[in-house]
Amino acid sequence: MTNEKIIEAKGVIKTYDDSGVPVHAVRGIDYTLMRGEFTAIIGPSGSGKTTFLNVITGLDTPTEGEVWLSGRLLSKMSGNELSDFRRDHIGFVFQAYNLFPVLTVEENVEYIMLLQGVPKEERHSRVMSILEKVGLDDYAQRLPSRLSGGQQQRVAVARAMVSEPSLVIADEPTANLDSKTSGSLLDLMRQLNEDTGMTFLFSTHDEIVMKRAKKLVVLTDGKLDENNPPEEYE
């Protein structure tokens, strides 16, 4: 872990309008994520974990406050700049895998590199290399619909990491997986974190994730729980 700030959130508030009723999903969070962290944001359902992740990665805009990503203020970025920033610096792993159903495993994984304009030969070698790491190199030509949930999530992890982003955001990555699959997937990500220094930020209420996280951040009712300050485990 270095002293470089990947994410810095200052006074972030996010309020939704639900048919005229304001919903305060995030109520003023100051938070800093350092390069190389392997951190889990934990909290019960509805505590604002996903909303907070969306806001700090530019998928959603904060109602108030500032978010800095690798030293750049999100609110000052244009739509295309934000897209390019996410493409080049952030990998996402979603709870529901969200693979493109019409693309094969190989095509799903190489998608971001295509957007980045990586040459075909390099794309292929990097895709096969990451698929080998997640144990799916024999499944490269399969469509996602012919994979199990665990295999699909491993493809999603491969997709998030193939372009070697500085940050991987994983929102409830184990929610649809059995404990054995969850454990092996987390072990894989932890291994990558240690090997490459890639930063991981999870949202979860899964104990398997919590046990493997190097740092836990507790979120309650849209705020960092002051009674449970971030804990670090090494």
């Binding site: 990665t57 998928l59 739509g79 295309n80 897209s83 390019d84 920033f85 996410r86 493409r87 080049d88 952030i90 996402f92 979603f94 969200n98 493109f100 998608y111 971001i112 957007l115």
Partner: peptide, 11 residues
């Protein structure tokens, strides 16, 4: 998902 992954609107 495409946008989250950095796909530009024009694409």
């Amino acid at each position: 998902v495409m946008k989250a992954m950095g796909t530009r609107p024009g694409f």
